Simulated scan of single mutants.
Amino acid sequence: MELRIMSPQENDFIKEIQWNNEELKQEITATMQEYKSLAFTEENIKDAKADRAKLNKLRTAFEDERKKIKKQCMEPYTKFEKQVKEIVSLIDEPIALIDSQIKEVDDQKKAQKQKDIEELFGSLGFQNFVTLDKIFDPKWLNASVAMSKIEEQMKSQMFQIGHELETIRKLPEFAFEAKELYKKTLDMNQAIQEGQRLAEIQKRKLAYETEQKAKEEELKRQTELRQKETATQKAQEKSKSVTESKKEDNSENSPESQQDQKTDPIMSIDFRAWGTREQLMGIRQYMLDNNIKFGKVE
């Protein structure tokens, strides 16, 4: 079975389309030079539009001829291409059937190898948090990868996991949290970074709590200081009030006061007043300021 081309043969193919291109090239080049030197103005713009239409018509004529020749050259190839595709489609059908059967056999082999890999994994004694999907390499299912090679890689991973766990356990802070993340990801760098992140948060938390405690103690100290100042001020005011009261009593018993009493008749009135402390103290102060003797009502 062979493909034989009867027509055209290699030497029969058109190698060149011959036409008077050089002649036309020289002629058109000379004509185009004339247009390069022209300067159109408002007075001769009508001539410019006419020349443009003439040049567009010439260009269209060349393009139409090019497309015509292309179609003539492509017609036999287009027919040949269609015929070849029909034959190729006949070949593609059994290829697809064979491919599907090959794939089915390959899938069966991969399924069996998947089972073998699972059995091997279960027999090696991996850490209890390690599952096959965490270490599985899709390349293991390739026919070119022997089970002995897979076993070697699994053991290497198991020993590496043990080593990385030991490294994480030695972290100074948050080793437990880092280990828990490692169990999920089997990524030692990520686990260590998580431990460091938590340690940094803890450090900032302690600094914040220390700062807040210092502020609370300072606030408490300031409050106690103000309370002491208030108590001292009240004591001073009370002492001053007692002193002034004694002075007033002495002033009432002085000769000058007795002379005044001889001059003006002394009268008395009993009354009871109700008011705020400030108001009552105001009445008291008024009587003191005006030398009015007062005392308790018996």
Rank of each mutant, 00 (worst) to 15 (best):
I14S: 12
P76M: 03
N20W: 00
N250Q: 13
E152A: 09
P8R: 07
I150E: 00
Q196G: 01
E194W: 11
K240T: 07
R221S: 14
P138F: 02
K68I: 05
T41Q: 09
P94S: 12
D64E: 14
R66Q: 10
L132R: 02
E252Y: 00
Q114G: 01
N291M: 10
K228D: 11
T167C: 01
F271S: 01
I91C: 06
A178V: 01
L3N: 06
Q101F: 07
V88D: 07
K215Q: 15
L219D: 14
L24A: 11
R204M: 12
E200H: 06
L3T: 08
D107M: 02
N291P: 05
K246A: 11
K262F: 03
K149G: 05
L24M: 11
A50S: 15
E86P: 00
K67R: 12
V105K: 14
M6H: 10
E43N: 11
Q33V: 09
F271P: 01
Q233A: 14
E218A: 14
A39F: 05
D289W: 10
I135E: 00
E237Y: 02
M32T: 10
K293S: 04
D264P: 03
K85P: 00
I117F: 04
K238V: 04
K79Y: 04
Q72E: 15
Y77R: 05
F13P: 02
Q285M: 08
D270P: 00
Q279N: 12
V88E: 10
F126C: 00
E93P: 00
E211V: 06
Q112T: 09
Q26V: 13
I117V: 15
V84L: 15
F40C: 02
F126W: 09
D187M: 03
R197A: 10
A30E: 14
K155H: 12
E216D: 11
N253E: 13
R169W: 08
L206V: 06
S257C: 09
Q202W: 08
Q33H: 03
E211L: 13
A235E: 10
E209L: 14
S245G: 05
Y208V: 02
E229G: 06
L141V: 11
Q190N: 11
F62S: 05
S123E: 13
A231Y: 04
K247W: 04
A214L: 12
D106C: 02
E43F: 10
D260K: 13
K49N: 13
K54N: 11
K179Y: 12
E256W: 03
L141W: 01
Q258E: 15
D107C: 01
A39L: 10
T31S: 11
E200R: 01
R204N: 11
A199D: 03
A199Q: 09
Y35H: 05
L141K: 04
E63G: 04
T29V: 05
D187H: 07
D260I: 08
F80E: 07
Y35D: 06
G122W: 05
S7W: 05
L132W: 07
